[in-house]
Structures are given as C-alpha cells and as structure tokens.
C-alpha cells in the first residue's frame, strides 16, 4: 500500500477477489478522505487488483467528499477492466447513495457473502 498515514482499509483475499473493509466509522474529515482515497486507488493503480469488494460494515457516516472518491475509484476500476462491488451498507448510508442516485452507478450487495457470489 502506497500512501502515508495509518492503514484505513482491512484487506483480505477471498479466492481471486480482494475484499477491502473500511476501518473508520466516520469517513468525513478531509484529510481522512484523502488518505482513504489514496489507499483505495493503490489497490488498482499499484497492486493491479481486478475484482474488488468494498465492505462498509463499520461505516456510520460518509460525506459527499467520500462519495467523490468512490466515483473516482469506480472509474479507475472500469478503466482497468476490473469489477467493483460494494456491500454491507447500513440503511442510513444507503439513503445517501439513493438520494444522490449513486445506487444506480454502483453494484451494491446486501452483505459480503452475496457480493462474492458469482464474482
């Protein structure tokens, strides 16, 4: 992993899929978001991982700046011909995706097990 600062993602390999679970409860602060974004992008740009699941089970808050990073991540994965899935998003947070219609952009699954199915 490339970027400085504390590790913000728990990385696990399940077969050929990389599962990245956010460690933070709040993905709000600008500096935090920058670090998390860099760690996410490193999965594609440096580690060349093609199938990625982002697990949101710890996340209680997330701002529009964090959504911006997820959008960039999605673009990077698509450009690398990879696949990105999101999972375990609690209802409050899902509402944030629904309001901004990003639930249409992202491939969102109920839990990690379902996200890994047929991936």
């Amino acid at each position: 992993m490339s970027s400085g600062g504390h590790r913000r993602l728990d990385i696990e390999e399940v077969g050929d899929v990389t599962v990245a679970r956010f460690i933070d409860k709040k993905i709000l602060d600008e500096t935090n978001i920058q670090i998390i974004g860099n760690q996410l992008f490193g999965l594609v740009d440096e580690d060349k991982r093609g199938k990625i699941v982002l697990d949101f089970s710890n996340v209680e808050y997330l701002s529009s700046a964090a959504l911006g990073k997820l959008i960039t991540m999605d673009k990077k994965v698509k450009a690398a011909k990879g696949k990105l899935r999101l999972c375990s998003i609690r209802p409050d947070i899902y509402e944030v995706f629904a309001i901004t219609k990003l639930n249409k952009l992202f491939d969102i699954h109920e839990n990690q097990e379902k996200a890994l199915e047929g991936f």
Binding site: A65, L67, G68, K75, I99, K101
Partner: peptide
C-alpha cells in the same frame, strides 16, 4: 443526479 453528471464528484453536498 442527472445522467451526464452522475460520475462527476460535485453538487452532492448541497443535495444531501
């Protein structure tokens, strides 16, 4: 939320 803006990272703060 317009189709052409969906991938742009701006305007969502006010909307939320």
């Amino acid at each position: 939320t317009a189709e052409e803006n969906l991938e742009k990272p701006s305007g969502r703060g006010i909307m939320l």
